[in-house]
Each structure stands twice: as C-alpha cells, then as structure tokens.
Write a protein that binds this DNA or RNA. Structure first.
Lengths: 220, 220
DNA sequence: GATTGATACTCCAAGTTGGAGTAACCTGTC
DNA sequence: GACAGGTTACTCCAACTTGGAGTATCAATC
C-alpha cells in the first residue's frame, strides 16, 4: 500500500463533502481544487482506486443503461486520515510558469515576442478572474451548492481573485516597460532600470510607475 | 533522443549566460529560475546529460584534486533551439499549494489549526520577499552579476515581490477573518460572509476589510 | 587533526503527466 | 429515425519527475 500524497487528500477532501463518481471528481477539480492542486485527469481516475485499497473509501458500482458508473464514498477511516493530515504542516506553495521562464530569458527574444507572452499571460489571468466571479456570484445571491462551505471558499476565492488581478496588472505594466526598451542591441539605460527597481521594492501596494513616466528622481 | 521539456530550456537558458558545472546550475536554480520552475536536484543533474546527448550542450571534464568537475557549455544548436522555444506559446501558469488545499477543507479543522497554516504561509512569503530584496539590492547599487540581464530580471523580481506581498497580506487578512468564526459547530453568519465576498469581488486593489470591521452595509 | 560546510555527483522506487484510445449515453435537429 | 455533437465513464502507457538515500572529495576553521 503506497503512502498517501496530497492528491490523495484532495480527493479525500472532496469525498468528505459527498460521494462522487470519478468523472464528477474531475469536474470538481477543474472547478476549484485543481486551481491550487493541478493534476492530470488520468491521475484523478487512479487515485480513488488507491483510496479504496487503503480502506479510506468504498466503491459502489451501478449501471446506467449498459454503462457502469462507480461512485466513491469516504469511510470513517478516511475521515480520520483527512483530519490528521489537516493539522500537519503544509509543503511550501510554489508557482510553475513557463511564461516567467521565457521572460527571464527574454533578453534573447524580440520585444514583440515578449509582449505576446505578456498578453497571453494577462488573458489567462483575466479568464481565471471571470471564472471565480461567476462561481462566487451564485453564492452572493444565496445560490450555489454546499453553502456550509461558504466561509472557507471565500478565503480561497479572495486569494485566487487577487492573484489573477496581480498577474493581469503586472503583465500590462511589464508590457509598458518593454515598450521603453531600445530595439535591437542598442545600449540600455541601466540607470533608469535601477531607479525603477529601487522604487518597485520600496513602494508597497501597487506596481511601480514605468521608467518613462515622469523624470525619475535625482539619484543620490 | 527524448523530446525537450521546459526543464531542458531552463538549463539551456542558464548555459546561454555562461558555462556552469551541474552544482552551480542547482545553485542558480535556487537563486532565481527555480522560483518559477521548481525542479528536484536529481533532475537538474540529469538534464545536462540529455542536452549533451541532443547535441545542444558540450561537457568538459576537469579535475579538482582527485574530484572531477564537469562544466557544461551551450552549442550553436543549443542557442538556436532555445531561441526557437522562446517564441513558442507558453503553457499556463499554475500554483501548487498544500496550504490552500488545507484551507479549502479547513471547515473540518479547528480555527487554531487554520491560523497555524496561515502564519506559516505568511512567513514563507516574507522570507521569499527578503530573498528578492537582497538580490535586487545588489543590482540597485550597481553590483550583482550579469548587469546586461537587469531589465529582464527586474520584470521578474517585481512580479515575485508583489506575489510575496500578496500572500503575506492575504494570510493576515484571512487570519483576522478566521478570528470572527464561531468556535465549534455553532451557526455562522452566512449573510456577513456573503457581504464580505461581494465587497471583495467589487473592490479592486486591496484586500477586503474584515466582516467585523464597520457594520457592513444595508444589504439591498 | 578533526569537524563542518561546500562541492560533485549517482541511484531508484514510486508518483505524475498528457495524449491516445474506447465506448455508451443524451439531446436536439432535420 | 438517423445522425451529430456533447457529456459521461473510463483504461493504458511511455516518458518525465520526485525526493530521499548514498558516496566522496575539497577547503577553511579551531
């Protein structure tokens, strides 16, 4: 019996809400949980098998016409396991971003290419934002499933909403920055970039103004 | 010859700056690149082998005393491959967060447990922020390696810095929210949470004020 | 001369991906 | 009543990745 992974607990957590078929579990994952614990569909289909093998869930097979449908339910042992995991320390939160990787090596690319990546990044963030808004709106109007989960979901949505906005705002700011870069291999104004960076790290709440706005300050 | 992964390009991008030993590559990854493309050390040791097999890098073995040290350099084919990759579309940016997973299922845990997770989350974000500040400070003062990379690094640091602040601020806000939750299984004021959520999604720049601050509004 | 930390790797079982493949059900349209 | 297109319900597998364990040597400090 293999040890449990966070993926196991993600599924177990969903099963603690109500029994689901594997297909429903994949849908639930793409609705919310998957935004902080993204896993491939094939993996989500395997996980309930492991939970059943470990005695943390049970499988009930039914027939819908000639097609089978397996519904998984959590067991008492499963709930105990989930609750124990909840109070253990969590692994660090990480980002995985091919876009940021390309920005980091973007000194080898043309400004147009970088701008293309930044726009796609912003669009992805905005469609994520729209996704939360839609789900959250149902709850605001008193609809939406599992109202007993509203308080924890709200904490979750607020973070993901702010993260989506941060990405969109940053991408727009970065685009305006890239626009100030000299084309080709011309020399850059490193002094201006340094000032920008200094301002960015002092300034707390919003993104720094672009290098080309205002006249910077008399650098001491 | 297996196909290249983003990890291959991350290493290739570093090799495009200068030749490194594998150990130095792992150090560079933990310094910056690894914050947006986190990979296990063992994987970082394997990747240069694949690059050499694909003709994208060369390995030069030297001896330091009796210990060998392999330094990898990018080839012309490697640079071409890297540049081609840079203009291809990037995969979506994702978050992986065990903490958020625990918050989502936190309705099963005690407020104390959740607060513990939120504090650890804030601390992790703050130490990340300190890390950027330290690196960026060198550049602001005109020190720091590879000054020709300053412009792309600045875009990168600004996003990671804002993300770190967002996490720390959110965690503090969330902690104050959790403090308003009734202990045990007492009934929750769902109306208040709904108002909070509505405000959170309207309000743009900062985190919403807590439910217990002010008296909410006369809900229409 | 011993300890500690940095440098320099290898190995492997098990978790995970992502795409391909299969098939039945359901709804609406012509 | 047939067909299309979308939804539900899975399996399979090669290749990628993890994370911990293991093995050394080098360099600086006490």
């Amino acid at each position: 019996m293999a040890r449990l992974t966070p993926t196991s607990y993600a599924i177990l957590g969903l099963l603690a809400i109500k029994p689901w078929s594997t297909y429903e579990l994949t849908m639930q994952m793409s609705r919310a949980v998957g935004h902080v614990w993204p896993r491939a569909e094939s993996n989500l289909y395997q996980e309930p098998h492991r939970l059943v093998a470990a005695g943390l869930a049970t499988a009930e097979r039914r027939l819908v016409g000639r097609r089978q449908r397996t519904e998984y339910s959590i067991t008492a042992a499963g709930r105990a396991e989930l609750d124990a995991w909840l109070s253990e320390p969590a692994a660090p939160t990480v980002i995985e971003s091919e876009t940021l990787l390309k920005v980091l090596f973007g000194n080898r690319a043309t400004p147009e290419v970088i701008v293309g990546h930044l726009r796609a990044f912003a669009e992805q963030a905005e469609s994520g934002e729209a996704h939360w808004r839609e789900i959250a709106h149902d709850y605001i109007e008193g609809r939406g499933p599992f109202p007993e989960r509203l308080h924890v979901n709200t904490l979750f949505w607020v973070l993901l909403d702010r993260w989506a906005r941060l990405r969109a705002d940053w991408a727009r700011w970065a685009e305006s920055e890239v626009a100030t870069w000299p084309t080709g291999d011309g020399p850059r104004d490193r002094e201006a970039v340094r000032r920008l960076l200094a301002r960015a790290l002092e300034d707390g709440t919003s993104l720094p103004r672009s290098t080309d706005v205002g006249d910077g300050r008399a650098d001491g």
